[in-house]
Nucleic acid binder design. Structure first.
Lengths: 229, 229
DNA sequence: ACCTGAACACCGTTCAAGT
DNA sequence: ACCTGAACACCGTTCAAGT
């Protein structure tokens, strides 16, 4: 549990004492975001960020616990400013809408994929981001699920969304993958007939973003299973 | 496209020439696996692996392209030895059975999560592992899907499975997460009623492995959507 | 043909010393 | 209180020189 910067710090009697700060957590987060947007996610290192801010690398450790903490603060601040969508009237559509909104926000900033799977990620979100979780849980309960079913539905949707973001984030843009031809030629048509039949189309079929369609199928499947038991 | 070691190399006229090899790709893969099993995934570095084998670190680069290549070879060899399950008679159950089998194999060796999302992962699998992909595609087609629908169903199942493995692989074993109490106390009951209501149960509800149940719901949702259009 | 050590170009993080 | 450089303990990879 650490200071989130919203509490005014009690001042020493005669004002501040000791060496004055040269930076702050807010400046560090702003610098990190700038560095990522300008030079790419791979360029975000503690040392480069410090250089960007014009401070010593070790100074950052007075403002964030470690690099993972920095990343979590960054994603939290980002999700905090994501607008909440208008929710439709049926519970099922509310679930889908909330899921698409949070997914699209994360997918738009692909480096977030690197932090999505850290232990206790959901528990570290702030209230604005938890609004999406609440919308999904409430939608499931309104649809007729028990609270426990709602939690499991959320978790399964999270697996799907996180998997989609992670796989796509690491799929480079490219015309045709380098060894795709080698891949096709290795296929044994008699053992793998379906795969052989679709091999040449695979890349083109799999490239378009079908998250919205996919999450609808996932949600419908999960809701149907919950209500059937 | 590189030598996969199955082709006999043509010998020079008078037999081999030049400095004799001190190791081989097979030995490197065996050493890597031993290192992971004994010391954990984090301990697998090029340098430590070379030390384990008693060779110079740079020697490995004559047998594998780079570290990612090594990891892919390792997972390929592992998946190659995974037994193919008996497939049930209905297409829908064949899809579910194949998915659970491949998931459980990957989940049993959690470090594989690190490689699951590399670009073109599926295209680098060998025939034995592609058997699972074929089983899922064939199941979908037998159920009445078009080949394109079958490919998208496979891809969506892959997102779900990969997400589950990735999230779980990074979730440490623990009684109760350190700042879970802080998490609960931050929640505003009036804005987040559902979340507040389930907060204390969340961890216990989410901990059990429900992949088999989840993939059934996902498959049913995807198949229903495909047949409806 | 294959192996090697040295070197390059980095990392995240700790810590004692300084202001 | 806060900042700093030096240092620790590493990485993956390239490359010229060796056998």
């Amino acid at each position: 549990m650490h200071d989130d910067g919203t509490m005014p710090r009690p001042l020493a009697p005669q004002g501040r004492t000791g060496r004055p700060p040269v930076t702050s957590r807010a400046q560090i987060l702003a610098g990190a975001r700038q560095l990522i947007d300008r030079d790419g996610w791979e360029q975000l290192t503690i040392r480069k960020l410090a250089a960007e801010l014009g401070v010593g690398p070790t100074t950052l450790y007075h403002h964030v616990r470690d690099k993972e903490d920095l990343l979590l603060l960054l994603i939290t601040a980002y999700l905090d400013q994501v607008p909440h969508p208008e929710l439709p009237s049926t519970p099922r559509d509310r679930i889908v809408t909330a899921a698409i909104a949070i997914h699209d926000s994360l997918a738009a900033w692909p480096w977030t994929a690197e932090v999505l799977t850290v232990d206790g990620f959901i528990a570290r979100l702030n209230e604005s981001a938890l609004w999406f979780v609440e919308a999904i849980l409430a939608g499931a309960v309104d649809h007729g699920c028990t609270p426990q079913q709602a939690v499991l539905i959320f978790r399964n949707m999270w697996y799907y969304a996180a998997g989609e973001i992670l796989v796509r984030a690491r799929t480079k843009e490219r015309a045709t993958p380098p060894d795709f031809d080698a891949f096709f030629s290795r296929l044994d048509e008699s053992n793998l007939p379906q795969l052989t039949a679709v091999a040449h189309e695979w890349d083109a079929w799999v490239r378009p973003d079908t998250f919205a369609q996919g999450i609808e199928a996932v949600v419908d499947g999960l809701l149907a299973q919950a209500l059937a038991t």
